Computed example of a mutant assay.
Amino acid sequence: MKIGKNLAVILCNGEPPEKEQLQRSIDTADLFIAADGGGNIALQYNLLPDIIIGDLDSFHQPDTVTVPVLHKPDQNINDLEKALNHITQLEVENVLVFGATGQRLDHTVKNLSVMKQFHNQFNTLVFRDKFCDIKLINSPHTEQVTPGTQISLFPLSGKVTGISSSGLKYKLNNHSLENGVFDGTSNESVSDQVVITYESGDLLLFINHQTD
């Protein structure tokens, strides 16, 4: 999927992305931020963030490299929140986050909550890992994809009602998705455009990578 102009890339301390995958995104970005321990991953890849933000309980500043660091010790918010708060002050429109998933499951779930918190503050806010792109979508939502792409829909919090779709193998027609009751995992696109509408709730869209 494509991300619009005015792009910030954030690297968190979850499952590291492939270096080439991260490098491609940084090359098109206006800003590269590491959230605390994400700075260790960046330096292991010989990539220098524009700034490292967090409580700094995980980042280890090497003697041979100088990187701008913004210490935010507040323990009531996590390091991704601190990075996103910083970006909102810079009027960035599009954000691509690596390392927000994997490793500790509780951290992944927390970061999905952070996605909901900041969803309306950016034009796009996407989590990307080795397997998929994750985004919280508004209704209506149109996604350009390659036919045969695996797509999943999941209610982030509770229940999403009145979901309808076009361009998916297993069509939804005024369906509801609810945690612990029914979800929309492992669907598949049958055209190059998928359109999703819904009435209420918080709907996550997962788009599996075909090449990464």
Rank of each mutant, 00 (worst) to 15 (best):
I3P: 06
N6C: 13
V9P: 08
I10P: 04
L11T: 02
N13K: 13
G14V: 02
P16Q: 05
E18P: 06
K19P: 03
K19S: 01
L22Y: 11
L22P: 12
S25F: 15
I26P: 07
D27S: 14
A29Q: 02
D30W: 07
I33R: 01
D36C: 11
L43S: 06
Y45I: 10
N46D: 15
L47M: 15
L48P: 11
L48H: 15
P49L: 09
D50R: 14
D50C: 14
I53C: 09
G54T: 05
P62H: 12
P62N: 12
D63R: 15
D63G: 15
T64H: 15
V65A: 10
V67D: 03
V69I: 13
L70D: 06
I77N: 11
N78V: 07
K82V: 04
A83Q: 02
A83K: 03
L84W: 07
N85E: 10
T88S: 13
Q89L: 14
Q89K: 14
L90M: 14
E91W: 08
E93I: 04
L96F: 12
L96H: 12
T101S: 08
T101H: 01
G102Y: 11
G102P: 10
Q103N: 12
R104D: 00
L105M: 00
H107T: 11
T108G: 02
V109S: 11
K110V: 12
L112P: 07
V114K: 03
H119E: 06
N120K: 13
N120R: 13
T124I: 09
T124L: 09
L125V: 00
F127A: 01
D129E: 03
F131M: 10
F131P: 05
F131Y: 10
C132D: 08
D133V: 00
D133F: 08
D133N: 12
I134D: 02
L136G: 10
L136C: 07
L136M: 11
N138C: 08
N138W: 03
T142R: 08
E143W: 08
V145D: 11
Q150T: 01
I151N: 12
I151D: 07
S164D: 03
L168F: 01
K171S: 10
L172W: 02
N173G: 04
N174Q: 09
H175K: 10
H175A: 12
N179Q: 01
G180F: 04
F182T: 00
F182V: 03
F182S: 00
T185L: 14
S186I: 00
N187T: 05
S189M: 01
V190M: 06
S191P: 11
D192K: 10
Q193H: 09
V195A: 07
T197W: 00
T197C: 06
S200I: 00
D202K: 07
N208V: 00
H209G: 08
D212A: 11
